[in-house]
């Protein structure tokens, strides 16, 4: 009975985190962008500092008509937002927050599981783009797929380097094995992982698949109301997951002063800082061109990741 209650609590906790943290990131993005770019819009709703903007957005999305174009592949079109959203919920359960088993569910092959499941979200964009029966959406979807293919590999290799350093693919195990000097040792891998993750999330400067000045809004052009909101939620959940994973793999997760009692706070703080960087990059970098984007992955990130693996291997064998 106790076990059942325990599992139910974990499920509820994961769902709450999944619904709250992405919204916090979204709200922060409104405010940070408003400050950095002098935008007035997000600072208006509700009076003080535009606190009600997110609520207003939510109300708008919930009461908008759900238009499915007559030419679209109806079922696929309607299911696509769910397919792109749910993988991030699944990933959240495996991310360790604090020491001594403070994790939704420790999975032995956690790193493997997380990387595999994160890739599924792209199917949602592909489904959306194809089912929309819209030329620009199709282009956007194909760009999404191409982007995944280019950036999944450096991400895998960089994550593999951490697995080599820790000698395990369990996420709590990796954080357990962490020492501070891993940060300089794995920094190249960390940068590659974070950059590749940004590209997989289609965040600027890697937002070719939704480039509004070329292909309207890519795969999401035809979506309205709630289904569109779910795509947005998927993007923000993706930011949370990517930042948390980077924290766990490269920044030592819960390690920090007083990690015994405040470990969870360290994980959250590091994740939040990375999320801020994600937003910051959005306001400060111009979008890459499609071919530049591919070139960056294949000719810069992959060689860097391979070099990191060589470095990790040599150091690890020398010290052990």
């Amino acid at each position: 009975m106790n076990g059942t209650l325990d599992v139910i609590l974990r499920l509820v906790a994961v769902l709450v985190v999944f619904l709250v943290l992405p919204l916090v990131v979204g709200q922060t993005e409104h405010k940070v962008m408003a400050h950095m770019q002098g935008r007035l819009g997000p600072m208006y709703a509700g009076g003080f500092h535009g606190w009600a903007q997110l609520v207003a957005d939510g109300v708008k999305f919930a009461q908008k008509e759900d238009v499915v174009p007559a030419g679209a592949d109806r079922r696929i079109f309607q299911l696509a937002p769910a397919v792109s959203l749910l993988p991030y919920l699944l990933v959240l359960i495996a991310i360790p927050v604090g020491p001594n088993g403070f994790v939704g569910q420790a999975i032995d092959a956690g790193l493997f599981f997380v990387l595999a499941v994160m890739g599924v979200g792209v199917l949602g964009s592909l489904m959306a783009g194809w089912a929309s029966a819209n030329k620009f959406s199709l282009l956007g979807a194909l760009r999404t797929a191409a982007q995944l293919m280019a950036y999944e590999l450096p991400m895998l290799l960089a994550a593999g380097s951490v697995a080599m350093a820790a000698g395990t693919v369990s996420l709590p195990g990796i954080v357990q094995a962490f020492h501070w000097w891993w940060i300089p040792w794995q920094i190249v891998g960390g940068l590659v992982f974070f950059t590749a993750g940004l590209a997989e999330l289609q965040r600027p400067p890697f937002d070719m698949p939704v480039a509004d000045s070329e292909i309207i809004f890519g795969a999401y052009t035809e979506y309205t109301g709630l289904r569109f909101a779910l795509f947005l939620l998927a993007e923000y959940a993706g930011i949370v997951v990517l930042c948390a994973l980077t924290t766990v793999l490269f920044l030592g997760g819960w390690h920090g002063p007083l990690s015994g009692s405040l470990g969870w706070l360290w994980t959250l703080v590091k994740t939040a800082l990375l999320a801020f960087v994600v937003i910051w990059l959005r306001v400060s970098y111009p979008r890459l061109r499609e071919d530049q984007l591919q070139k960056l992955a294949w000719t810069v990130l992959i060689p860097l990741a391979l070099a990191q693996i060589a470095l990790t291997g040599i150091v690890k064998v020398v010290i052990s």
Binding site: A82, L89, Q105
Partner: peptide, 29 residues
């Protein structure tokens, strides 16, 4: 471990179903 993961998937599907059902009730057609 993986049955818990399976349960999370079930929770996710339920969440989406509830959201779509609520949206169906709230929005104009």
């Amino acid at each position: 471990a993986y049955s818990v993961v399976g349960l999370v998937a079930v929770v996710g599907v339920l969440f989406v179903a509830v959201a779509f059902a609520a949206g169906h009730l709230l929005r104009p057609v």
